[in-house]
Structures are given as C-alpha cells and as structure tokens.
Design a protein around this nucleic acid. Structure first.
Lengths: 244, 244
DNA sequence: AACGGGATTTTGTATTACAAATAAGATTGC
DNA sequence: GCAATCTTATTTGTAATACAAAATCCCGTT
C-alpha cells in the first residue's frame, strides 16, 4: 500500500453545515462555564486542544479568539490561556448565557433571570411610556396581536418574546438592549413550566394589553404597575411548577 | 541589489507589547461602531483588510473572530462578513462600550449611562440589603474608606467604582455583574465634569455612608432611597457641567 | 421559461515555519 | 553565598500556502 502524503480530512464528529471553530468554541466555553476550568486556571495549550479534538491549531486558535472576545479568557505567550475572573465574563452574551444555563440548575437559573427582569423591566416601562415613538408602539401592538392569535402555549412564546423586546426598544436606550437576551432565556425556560399547565393561561393577554394601553396613553406609572403585575403572575407560575 | 526573499517584518504602526490581532480588532470594531460600516453592510473581504493594514490573512481572521465573539458580525463562505443588527451587539462588552463611547457625543453617552444606573441600582440596593454576606459588606466598607482617604476628586474615582461594583456584588445575582461596566464608564466620564468643579464634593461621602449603613442594617427600602439620593446628586453634576 | 449544473468567489481548515514574549533555570560576578 | 544576568525552553503570535466547503451567479440544457 503506497503511503498517502496527506490525510484528507478527519470526519469524526463533524456535521456538514457547522463551522468547526464554532463547535470548538462551544466545547471549550462549556468546559469553562461548568467549572471544569475554574477562574484563574490555565487551559491546555493549543497543541493539546488540537490533539483532544483532532483539529488543527488554526481552528483551535480561532475558537480561542472567539472566547477571548466574550471575555472568558486571555492568552499570553509562554503562559497560555488563563480563565478570566467571572466578573469579566460577558454573561449577557447569547452563547455564554446558554452555556451558563446548561451548567446550572434550571429552576435556580430561571429565578435569577426573573430577578433581573424585576429590576429592569418596570423602569424600562416608565421610559417606554415617556418616549415611545408611534412606530415602536405599533411593534408592541403587533406582538400583542401575535400573542392573541396563538392557539396554545407553545405558539405564544415567540410573540411574547417579541413583546418584551419591543418594550425594551420603546425605552430608546441602546444600553438596555443587551438585556433582551435575559428575557429570551427566561421565557424559553418558563415554557418548560407552563406547557404542562393548562393549554393557554387566561389572564395573560389582558395583562399584556394593560401594558400596551398605558404606554399608548403615555402614563409612566400605570405602565410600571402593569409590568409589575405581569411579573408577579410569571413568578407565580414558577412558584407552582406544573407536574414534576 | 540582491532581491530579498523574505520581507522580514512590516514595522509600520506596530508597538512592541501589543498583539497585532487585538489592534486590528479595535480598528475594525471602531469602524463598525462609528457607522463606517452600518448594520447589514458587507465588510471588505479578508484579503482586502490584509492589504489595508499590511497584515496577513491569519491575523485578520483572528481579529474578525474576536469581533464575532462580541456579536458585531457574522461570516459566511462566499458572502463575507456582514455587520449584525445593533440589537445583537454585546454593547456591555468592555471594548465595544469603549468604541461606542468614542463614536458618540460624550454628554449624550453619559446621560444614557446614568439612565441605566437609575433603573438598575435602586433595585440592586434592595437585594443587597436583603442578602449581602458579611464579606461583601466588608468590601463595601473598604471601598467607602478608600473614598474617604482620597485627597482630591481624581483619587476618588477608583474607590468610587469599587464601591458600586461591591454594591452590585452584594445583590448576589451574577447576571447583574455585566452592568458593572456601565458604572465604570459612567464614573470615568463623569470625572470630566467634576474635575473642574471644586476639589472634593462635600456631600458625597455621607451619601455613600448612608447606603452602607442601610445595607449593613439590612433595611432594603432605606438602601433604595439612599441610592436614589446618590444618583440624584450625580445627575445634578451633569446638569451643571463645570467650566467646559 | 424553468430547471439543473458547473464556475467563481469567499470563508474555513490544515500545515509549516519562524518570530516574539516570558518564565524558569543556569551562569557568572561580586 | 547571593544577586544580577544570560541562556534556554515553552507557548502564543504572525506569516505564507494550499486546498476544502459553501453559496451565489450564470449559463446551458431541456
């Protein structure tokens, strides 16, 4: 058998549409979030990662640069890559939050998500009532209509997310938008609780409608109260998880 | 003259301690934040960037992967790298926020930072009063002491930042820590206003002290009011910018 | 005209080679 | 013996090249 000069491609564990470095970033990121490599720890060097995953140093490096961009680690010559302290992590990054969620207790995670919502959304609603443009209000109403048209709890998740993202947008402060990912995660996780409940909770639509009304009428305090009512209802669902 | 086979190194604009790809990421990131490449726009391909900066494709790619990690852009074969919609950007990333600050009006930026603080910090103070550990309280007191020892406004910035980060930590909700960067930026920018004012504002220490007292005594509502008083004072400084 | 199949462009991955930074150990001078 | 310095080894950083893969576009076929 003639020796092959080039090993053509390592096919092991490689889906077609996926980009390798993205998968590697996820693999390494997960190991950081789950505590396999705690803050301050030194990661294996690039050659080792390459051996572990059967990937080239190029791909490993690009994965590490991605994690670098998310604040999870820093690299220095002769030292290697060291995990940054947790307070430097961009926890509100979509990927990082997902890895974080996967690594911890679902209910505890959901509770801390809701806690953040309780802090941010009422204040956001106040700004929204004061400054929303007609276009932003229309987006809010569209989302509400989407929720009304939903035929079961599952169909309601997407427009519900849209509703709260629209609410955020109404506040006209860009620095609040990164917080949208918290809402997405909260509602997605919440779905696990509601789905075993009755088909479509009755009071949800009127409560959302109250929020829209207050913002349409530009009554900040009413908007704040309406959002708090909404959050109270949500927390009650968490307090009484369905079947399990 | 004999032709050289290897061009040894392009020295143009390359500081010793700096990593090239980090500088490239900053250069490209700045151009995105300042609107040179708006959301949805297609960036030059990697080869072109390489020519522009006199860098190899490798370095360019690593820079792009960093920006990828920050949510500023996505890359696909045959298409190129496209700037993501603003709501996907990790605005709370340290670098992104700095580029954002550099690209917009300082006062407007500061106002929106303070707006977020007004939404966030009162609620955080409530949680802090309810749940702070003795160690977290000690950290808060250390920061307060640092502020007291400061001899002018300049020396007060660092411990002031520490104070508010410690307050965030007292809330014991990791999802709040990413907002720490907002506080850092706000106080850093605020310094431009205060420095031309009188040397060391008198009321600041007692106001911070009130916050510590309320949290030490575990009185949530008092903590909330004390923080609001603090923010009111800060906003007054912005309202009356010094000399200019 | 609709459909399918290459041609083309751009990113994605692999490989190799060398440069730069830095920690740790070896050496030298006092 | 001790300290300062020099060397060395390790790891990341950058470059260059080659080819693979994805996706658009265009062209030809039916």
């Amino acid at each position: 058998m003639p020796h092959r000069k080039k090993k053509p491609l390592r096919k092991a564990a490689r889906k077609p549409g996926s980009r390798l470095h993205a998968g590697l970033a996820a693999a390494i990121g997960t190991r950081i979030l789950d505590g396999t490599y705690p803050s301050g720890a030194l990661l294996p060097n690039e050659a080792e990662w390459g051996r572990m995953f059967g990937a080239s140093r190029t791909a490993i490096r690009e994965a590490i640069k991605t994690l670098n961009g998310k604040g999870l680690l820093v690299s220095r010559p002769k030292i290697g890559s060291r995990v940054e302290p947790r307070e430097r992590w961009n926890l509100l990054d979509r990927d990082v939050l997902a890895w974080h969620c996967a690594a911890m207790d679902k209910t505890a995670f959901l509770i801390s998500l809701q806690e953040v919502r309780r802090i941010l959304e009422p204040g956001t609603a106040v700004l929204a009532a004061e400054r929303r443009t007609p276009e932003q209000l229309a987006r809010l109403e569209t989302a509400l209509a989407g929720m009304s048209n939903a035929r079961d709890a599952g169909e309601m998740v997407a427009p519900d997310v849209q509703f709260h993202l629209a609410l955020l947008a109404c506040a006209n402060n860009e620095l609040l938008t990164p917080f949208g990912i918290v809402i997405e995660q909260a509602l997605a996780n919440l779905f696990d609780y509601t789905t075993r409940h009755n088909a479509k909770p009755a009071g949800v639509i009127p409560m959302h409608s109250d929020v829209v009304q207050a913002i349409a009428d530009q009554r900040p305090e009413a908007a704040r109260r309406a959002v708090i009512t909404l959050l109270d209802d949500t927390d009650q669902v968490i307090g009484h998880p369905a079947v399990k």
